[in-house]
Design a protein around this nucleic acid. Structure first.
Lengths: 358, 358
DNA sequence: TTGTATGCGTTATCAA
DNA sequence: TTGATAACGCATACAA
């Protein structure tokens, strides 16, 4: 076996010696081939005899050889790590995304490195630059809202790091993008309210400058326009995607006369805020007020009444994003991944037909 | 500069060339020292002249040299990666933990690799073994409930991987453990109910075999015993830490005659389930039923009425866990980190004195 | 189709 | 206290 008797004892005392793993040298010697041949087998080089390949693979199997990622990383100048860069405050969304990416990475030699960033911080770009250049990430997945930042995508590209952006609409080439169609989803949700007989429908919008907020608002407006319903300016309240901002927005909307009979909030947090505010004012939901959210976070199903909302297939999108990054890698992701995913409207107890005018 | 003109073009076409970074060779030549001397400076070797050190450091600064982690990993047989192994279904908890760990890792060369595992899966151990041996993680943080698995900790140790376990009580040496004191926390919460005049207090317990569930239950029982209150067996309902199991447990507790006037649930998910069930039955909270949860997840503050609960300092615990792992590493974590953290009881609207008996 | 020699950037050995 | 040289494990250029 390879001599490794120069290892210094681990600091801090008596660690048992790691199980000695066979190296490519061992396999080459045991198989009676050269290192390079073994290397070719590992990397699925096309120019190899079927016979030698099978022989080497047998030896690899027998001795349980696994190529050392650190050595490969050094030789290739690229690590076997996928990064997840995000500034999304929704924990469930980030976790689901991690799950999706990890599903794609399972049974590969890739691992997932997470890196929350602070938009607004001037050090953000240097932070990411440091991560990418130092760790030589194979690729990164960018989550919204930071994924909407074109400079960041450009930075990745300049640093020779693949990237895939997630978003509420296509804002990059298909190979760099996995998107939902939020506009359509909100249209569908709003249409449902209209079909229930609602006429005075208000919106709690998302923060300015967020693509998702824009798309959802457009979808809302489109549905109303399509039905010939009015949308007074006072029926649109600004929110910040937070629970508290949902309460604030609801306070202004519920003070209107006549009051809206239904409110569409651009995410579940704000929808929960609307519900909270309604309850504080003694307004019955859904009898006096219907509410629709967006995201289908766990929260939506746990409040009372449970919130109708829009569910987007985050896990599947995460998986697709990772597979896009890996596309072209030997043995993985040969199939073309879709770039757009459809969301589904979830009907729950927070919507009912409007009460008859008193 | 180091010759690197043998680089093959990146597959997939025209990637702009990465910014050429200086290597240790460049620095050595520029500083007129040997590679090893530069290496010693990087690794803060004590046997160096103040003069040479400063000189080399100046050159390093000037040319912005950053050691290549891949090369170091290969030479040291150890990667600069910290792993987070978890099977916790609570997204917020996992995210907070990640945040805490990353705070400790900031400004170091370490990155965080996440790995959710499937307890119950027979492949779980092989999974972790593969991760640790392949990636040569520097250390791992184990989240509950999987952190309670002693075999897993043993495996890490055998593989020469440092580990720190998180838990609801000390179940390992201080250097391997960061824990909260759930027993005390639930005692305090229950005492509060008692101080409000409650006498018939029920518990929605956590799943058997979970240390946290055991500790919280013990704390509950201790508080009742301390006050001389009875705890009939029927006042303890089993839960699975899920929202649905909270509903189920509440269904049985709320059917009792006389009904409990207060329910302590062993986590917020189940507490939300209790609230949901109460509302379904038309039982007013907190007028007819007080509820207390545990964890202080976002959910707790967003339901109506907001749930009194116990908050444990997850972020701080994550930071401490990472610092424990890094303790001894040159320049980091020289300070001894605490091993136990105190939780705080959060009073919200879900608790009130019991209604007078009718 | 296969093998040889060499590089990747760092750390360890051991002599000076 | 320093430095020349050999690992670390794998991949590539080029020759065979």
């Amino acid at each position: 076996m390879t001599d490794r008797n120069h290892k210094s004892p681990a600091r801090g005392g008596s660690r048992p010696p790691e199980t000695p793993r066979p190296t490519i040298n061992d396999i080459a010697r045991l198989a009676g081939e050269s290192k390079k041949t073994v290397s070719r087998v590992i990397n699925r080089s096309p120019l190899l005899t079927q016979k030698t390949r099978e022989h080497v693979e047998a030896v690899i199997q027998e001795f349980g050889f696994v190529p050392n990622p650190q050595a490969r990383a050094l030789a290739l100048g690229r690590n076997f790590l996928i990064g997840l860069i995000h500034d999304n405050p929704n924990a469930q969304m980030v976790i689901n995304m991690q799950q999706g990416i990890l599903e794609a990475l399972r049974h590969t030699e890739f691992e997932l490195v997470v890196r929350p960033v602070d938009r607004g911080s001037p050090a953000m770009f240097d932070d990411v630059r440091g991560l990418l250049t130092r760790q030589r990430l194979f690729g990164v997945v960018l989550l919204p809202p930071i994924s909407e930042n074109a400079q960041l995508a450009k930075l990745c590209d300049e640093l020779g790091c693949r990237y895939v952006r997630m978003g509420s609409a296509m804002l990059d080439d298909p190979e760099h993008m996995v998107s939902s169609n939020d506009r359509l989803a909100v249209m569908e949700a709003t249409r449902y309210l209209i079909s229930q007989g609602h006429v005075r429908i208000a919106l709690v919008a998302g923060p300015h400058g967020f693509l998702s907020a824009h798309e959802r608002r457009e979808g809302f407006a489109a549905a109303l326009a399509e039905a010939g319903l009015k949308l007074p300016r006072s029926f649109i309240a600004d929110g910040q995607y937070t629970f508290e901002s949902g309460i604030g927005a609801a306070d202004s909307l519920l003070a209107l006369v006549p009051r809206p009979t239904a409110i569409v909030a651009c995410n579940d947090e704000m929808a929960a805020g609307v519900l909270f505010a309604a309850r504080s004012r003694g307004i019955a939901v859904p009898e006096e007020l219907s509410i629709i959210g967006f995201d289908d976070t766990p929260l939506a199903a746990r409040v009372w009444p449970p919130l109708s909302t829009v569910r987007w297939p985050i896990v599947a999108m995460g998986r697709a994003a990772a597979l896009k990054l890996l596309s072209g890698v030997t043995g993985i992701g040969e199939v073309q991944e879709p770039s757009t995913f459809v969301s589904t409207f979830i009907r729950r107890g927070s919507v009912a037909p409007p009460a008859a005018e008193s």
